[in-house]
């Protein structure tokens, strides 16, 4: 008996793999943020979070497009036809939104990493990555400012907002170790000057976190055991639920177009 599947196989060269990692980060976080649409605390934030979601989904499209051109697939196939175990996103991006403070904490921790990453990637030896980075960096610079200013006001706001912001940081902190992971495929790209070395971004990330948390009167969580697994497809239970919603149409009607 043969079993048919709508899932595709991807030939993950180091470059394709890295592009998928960055694309999946942006797609999954963008999808999570889109869940705030219609539910944000104010109309202004509803639009702000939707704008950021659209920026991220746009970044994922550019990255999927480039990855697809290297492995003979298109952006829709890469987004809609891979299973959870084939997704390469950071675990922090798939975590539940929680309350507004938790969402802001996640956006802050991620943006403080990814904005300097894109700035460094603008001088990539790969011209396409450099171009994608130049566009993305302008967007993530604003994401970082938006999240930083909110975190400062939540932390230094009322007792309730401070408590929620601190709780969000504590919950998400164990997911920040993944930002700086490097495995053999990524190392080969770092050596070739194709992507930035995340280790060299750590000090800048750390001092940015300290500066904003000090202004927010929040406490930096202690480094202890860090979560890992997203980059090799070992995800939390949340990703399957996201993909069910994200992929059902293309899974039911493969290749459907608007």
């Amino acid at each position: 008996m043969s079993v048919t599947t709508t899932s595709i196989a991807v030939d993950e060269t180091p470059l394709v793999l890295h592009l998928l990692r960055r694309a999946d980060d942006a797609l999954i976080l963008g999808h999570r943020l889109s869940e705030w649409t219609g539910n944000a605390p104010t109309l202004e934030e509803d639009l702000a979070l939707a704008n950021i979601a659209l920026d991220l989904i746009g970044q994922s499209r550019a990255l999927f497009d480039y990855a697809g051109s290297l492995c003979g697939l298109d952006e829709d196939q890469l987004a809609y036809r891979r299973d959870a175990r084939q997704y390469r996103n950071l675990l922090i991006t798939e975590q539940l939104n929680g309350d507004f403070a938790c969402t802001i904490a996640r956006q802050f921790l991620y943006s403080a990493f990814i904005d300097p990453y894109w700035r460094e990637a603008m001088s990539s030896s790969d011209a396409t990555i450099a171009a994608i980075a130049a566009k993305a960096e302008k967007e993530t610079a604003y994401h970082l400012r938006h999240a930083s200013e909110w975190l400062i006001r939540l932390g230094d706001g009322t007792g309730e907002s401070h408590r929620r912001a601190q709780a969000g940081l504590e919950e998400l902190w164990p997911f920040t170790g993944e930002f700086f992971e490097v495995d053999a495929p990524d190392q080969s790209l770092i050596d070739a000057g194709t992507i930035p070395d995340p280790a060299e971004l750590h000090d800048g990330w750390s001092s940015r976190i300290n500066t904003i948390l000090a202004r927010a009167t929040l406490t930096r969580p202690k480094d202890s055991w860090m979560q890992t697994g997203g980059r090799t497809g070992r995800h939390s239970e949340h990703l399957g639920h996201i993909l069910a919603e994200l992929q059902y149409l293309q899974r039911s009607h493969p290749g459907a177009k608007w």
Binding site: L43, E45, A48, H146, W150
Partner: peptide, 10 residues
């Protein structure tokens, strides 16, 4: 500052 951000976003 937050008003400027909101104005930009909206």
């Amino acid at each position: 500052q937050m008003a400027l951000q909101a104005a930009r976003d909206v």
